[in-house]
Design a protein around this nucleic acid. Structure first.
Lengths: 337, 337
DNA sequence: TGCTGGCACTCTCGGGCTTCGACTGCTTAA
DNA sequence: TTAAGCAGTCGAAGCCCGAGAGTGCCAGCA
């Protein structure tokens, strides 16, 4: 759709603008190494690119800046292979060779790694618990009417739910319920555990035990969607890419709402994209932002996603490769466990 | 040290500057209700206040702005009682009447509450685990060489530590170790549990069990300082108080380092302060910020602290009362559990 | 002695003006 | 189709100037 020279000019404009944040004029483009025509020719082509919606002019007699369509074409058609620099890939390697242990810590550190690689805000969404099976379940009485249910999942994640009882309950009863619950749901997934029909288990139980079991199963059925783990790092880096405090404040407001962030990422992935540019993010407050996302795969299953959030004038190639590499390594590291 | 009129003038300057962020001139002060002298007199006093270090002039023929010393005097000597508005205290009441359940969720919500009350960033540091006793301990084998130790504390908090074993270990061994560990440390505090001499328990154990126990105790002794829970909310609100993106970025960088934030708060409390102004925070990057802190008390013991971080031109009275009220209510709510 | 009014002075801020320079679009010629 | 030239446009930067806000100081008055 775009002849080769126009594409080259578009690429030159986009890369230059990403670098400098200044509108790019025809002279700059003409003096670039990749373009061997005069500035007048460039002007003609840039006018055409503007007419077709790839570029825009802040005002007459200023250079051009890319539109969302321009960035989109750049990302889809012009994006280089985008390899990580040596020091960056070294950083990734040493990170993943050293990391181990607690998952939360690892995911949190991963968000730091990703933001330090890209200098944008990094979002790491922890694995869904849906595929993990229940390794162990325990009920601990904290006070006569308060019981804490602690589940250990095969992924190493822990869920805890507090259960408030209607009547004071003895520890012995709680323990009996714990044993029964353990045989009921160990080895199952959270989803199948919570779908157990609590009516069917009254037989043979004392009323107290049955009450606890019902309460525990009910609480499992609750929104386990809700406790998605999200780790966000590098907001301070990202902020430096903007110049209006107002914008920054709005973006931070989005990032504070973890649910919104998660659905933002998933929304992008659901649309089959790995990059959402400006309004493509689906959020008006992020009109000046782009998102680069990738899912990561643990044991053959898509487990979660990671992404970076930066300005529309983002170093897309670097961000894309950083996200891809980190997603890959993260998935492999988590699979080993 | 400051006569009454000077104090009144200082108060007028500080309140006006907090409100408008503009240097305050003698005319403004003289026309205020609280001051009944002419602007010339005010000028003389303001010059004196400047000589004594309470005020500063951005440039000749501009009004005065408070120095840190000025804010300090204002906070120490001139601070009004600072009651919460009706809608704010209503908000606090309904929040604490509705809140219950998971501690993490509650603390996180508390940070949101506090930031929405003050429009500054709110920091909530979760209870130290030092006083809590161990309610239950469990070892779960995730893979042949990886065991997860899950502790439930009397506070309802959960600690997990992964333990990597040198050799493949059977679940039976793990369970035996779990039973042994449970009798060893249940009812103790984390501190006393981790100080158990692992040498003394070899007798009577199989070598495998002893190995696991040693590893588990070692891991408990690790930095349980490290997993302080910190919840930070309302950064987007706070950001709006500043006008340079550069400053914002530096402040965010501080807030991203949770350990720094915790020690910042504790440092202020250790110095016996409830407010740290500008450089008093001990952090150069926070030269334009102030911190208001209060500890909260659970079951008669100081458990943790909450605070807000805002610009030096902060509404100190509102912030102080909001922090005090929320700390109080939070302590009471946690004590009930 | 302390307060006040008056006065001269200083310095920032904003508007208006001009210049400069970086662009563009168009026209024309090869 | 490309290049070169040229006129035109518009923002940015510099400058001047007046307005306004605010100060410091002095002299007089209670």
């Amino acid at each position: 759709m775009l002849d080769e020279r126009k594409a080259t000019i578009l690429r030159a404009v986009v890369t230059e603008y990403i670098e400098t944040a200044q509108p790019v004029g025809s002279g700059h483009v003409a003096s670039s190494d990749e373009v061997n025509v005069s500035s007048a020719t460039v002007r003609n082509d840039m006018a055409a690119l503007e007419a077709e919606g790839y570029l825009a002019q802040p005002h007459t007699s200023a250079g051009r800046i890319p539109t969302e369509k321009g960035y989109r074409f750049f990302v889809d058609q012009l994006g280089g292979p985008g390899k990580l620099g040596v020091s960056e890939s070294q950083q990734v390697r040493t990170f993943f060779s050293r990391t181990h242990g607690e998952m939360e810590q690892m995911l949190s550190d991963t968000s730091r790694l990703l933001s330090s690689l890209t200098h944008y805000a990094a979002v790491v969404v922890g694995p869904q618990h849906e595929v993990a099976t229940i390794k162990s379940v325990q009920l601990v009485g904290l006070s006569p009417r308060l019981v804490l249910a602690v589940l250990v999942l095969s992924s190493g994640a822990i869920e805890k739910h507090s259960i408030e009882l209607a009547a004071d309950t003895d520890d012995l009863i709680v323990n009996a319920a714990a044993v029964r619950l353990s045989t009921l749901i160990s080895g199952q997934t959270l989803a199948s555990a919570s779908s157990i029909d609590s009516q069917s288990l009254d037989l043979g139980e004392s009323a107290d035990v049955a009450n606890i079991l019902r309460a525990a199963l009910a609480v499992l059925g609750g929104e386990h969607r809700h406790d998605d783990q999200v780790f966000i790092g590098g907001t301070s880096d990202m902020v430096a890419s903007f110049d209006a405090v107002r914008t920054v404040s709005e973006i931070l407001r989005i990032l504070e709402q973890q649910l919104v962030v998660v659905s933002l990422l998933e929304d992008v992935l659901d649309r089959g994209l790995s990059v959402a540019i400006g309004r493509e993010t689906g959020n008006e407050a992020l009109a000046d932002c782009s998102i680069v996302v990738a899912p990561y795969v643990v044991d053959g299953e898509t487990a979660g996603s990671i992404g970076v959030l930066g300005p529309t004038r983002m170093h897309y190639d670097q961000a894309l490769s950083a996200v891809a590499v980190v997603a890959n390594r993260l998935g492999r590291t988590l699979s080993e466990g």
